[in-house]
Design a protein around this nucleic acid. Structure first.
Lengths: 287, 287
DNA sequence: TATTTTTGATAAGAAATACTTATGATAAAC
DNA sequence: GTTTATCATAAGTATTTCTTATCAAAAATA
């Protein structure tokens, strides 16, 4: 098709062949073959020149369109090669999002101004699925996951704190041996934070027959209403106790914690970029 | 690109290879080669499956566009093969057009109802040029031309008649020997009819220093105004004497005539169609 | 945990395709 | 009438694509 377009432009087999960097017979043969494959002549040959047939004109138009689109591919490919990632689909779990997202977005916007960031907030299993099928590029969540296809990079560790009603302010820190009997309030199923809290509190199975909360914010409000006690991650303290009055207690020993980090597909050709972005985030999060 | 589009559709190298009617290694190799040529990975391979890279998605979109356009070519080519000519660019000289065109168009519309006809009226040299460069398909004009690239088909012959002022009505038919001295009125240069008339009348070069007319209609009006005498083709008599009063005289011997026919490029792939159309016209013109 | 199955990649040789050089044919230009 | 310009043809070569056979890795199964 490129040969044909050149031939039409120059109206001369020899010159078109030169431009196409092939020999004149090669070009003649290709045009002839084209006509055979199409089952219709493209040009009407005369002694020293030729004119396009009606179909030849239609075909040429289509050629220009197609060759233009092919050239566009080349441009796109070159852009894709040189480009340091232009869009970032970022996932984040609900027990991190409200507290860390502002800082994350600010940091990214500062270090990667052109980056078009889209955020999806969902629970770990959904995020992992989306990472695998390419819907998400990276996700901020609690590690470890142990998925061998995913790169896991730890950003920081954070402690959990005990939240109890204000009237318990001067009571001693409960000992692990008493945990089972305490009125623990938990997040609903699916939140990794629920599992992390469960592993720490190990509440009596019979004891906890209350409604599970759908957010940390709700949990704290339930504590304030004296429905029980709970754990929240340290990063949530500031925001969640701003409009409530509860007692926050840090554990002395065996402090419960979680690891917060970033994941992405090891196989992604952008893995290197993701690592760099994560490094940026990690540094900013230390503060 | 077709392989790639199929691969994306099925998400499976083996199946895509089957559909593409090639072996699985062949498909793997072609995809790999594509990626090499583009300089960017199209898919992110994992153990038993793959997902498209960002560029892979862009490329796929472009592939669909291009492959669609290529498929269109196939349709166009098939249409071009089976089609009995859909559009006809017809040329006709000014000394025929006013008298024959209505009949020509009626005949064509009757025998080839779907034919999209475009008419161009111009002098022989222009028509021949347009025939050569493909602007026109066929032309109705006076033969012969003697162009070996053109097919010439005679439709009919027609006589020229003498047009003189009414007051000459009872005068004898002028003898050829007296022609040189007669006040001949002629068409302007470029009209083949002028040359045909000239060849017959052979007027004295000094004698004819009047303005040449740009149409037969004007010639007849000039005769009526007693500016001289002229020749017109038989087919023009009816129309041109309808609103004028002049004397029409047929010659007894050595009657001047012209051959009217149709031409087209011998090399045109539609030559056969043109011949058929001409036959239709020819039959209709006999009447 | 070991075995089988699934899936895509690799290797080597075969088939198909595109290209090159040399030559021919034809009509236009001189 | 000779030369020139132009495209087509022919034969052989180079390149590309494909095939079969085999491999490697991970997932599914026993």
């Amino acid at each position: 098709m490129r040969y044909f377009a050149t031939l039409c432009r120059l109206g001369h087999f020899g010159h078109a062949a030169d431009i196409s960097a092939i020999s004149q017979p090669a070009l003649s043969m290709q045009i002839k073959k084209l006509e055979e494959e199409l089952g219709t002549p493209l040009i009407e040959r005369s002694a020293k020149s030729f004119i396009l047939t009606r179909f030849g004109h239609e075909f040429l138009t289509q050629c220009h369109k197609i060759l233009g689109d092919v050239d566009t591919i080349e441009l796109m490919a070159r852009a894709a090669q040189h480009q340091e990632i232009a869009a970032l689909n970022l996932g984040i779990i609900p027990t991190i999002a409200p507290y860390l997202l502002p800082q994350v977005l600010t940091t990214l916007a500062h270090h990667h101004p052109e980056l078009d960031i889209k955020v999806r907030e969902s629970q770990t299993t959904n995020l992992v699925k989306d990472i695998h099928d390419g819907t998400l590029d990276i996700a901020v969540l609690a590690l470890p996951l142990g998925d061998q296809h995913l790169e896991e990079t730890l950003m920081f560790q954070e402690d959990f704190v005990l939240v109890r009603p204000v009237h318990a302010k001067n009571m001693p820190i409960p000992a692990p041996s008493s945990f089972a009997k305490l009125p623990w309030l938990l997040l609903e199923e699916g939140h990794c934070f629920r599992d992390q809290a469960l592993a720490f509190c190990q509440p009596d199975v019979n004891e906890r027959r209350r409604h599970d909360a759908s957010s940390l914010s709700t949990l704290v409000q339930m504590v304030q209403a004296d429905l029980g006690i709970t754990l929240i991650p340290e990063m949530a303290i500031d925001l969640e106790t701003r409009s409530t009055t509860v007692d926050i207690v840090r554990f002395d020993t065996d402090t419960p914690k979680r690891d917060i980090g970033v994941i992405w597909r090891k196989s992604s050709p952008l893995a290197h970029s993701f690592a760099k972005i994560t490094e940026t985030l990690s540094t900013a999060m230390q503060r």
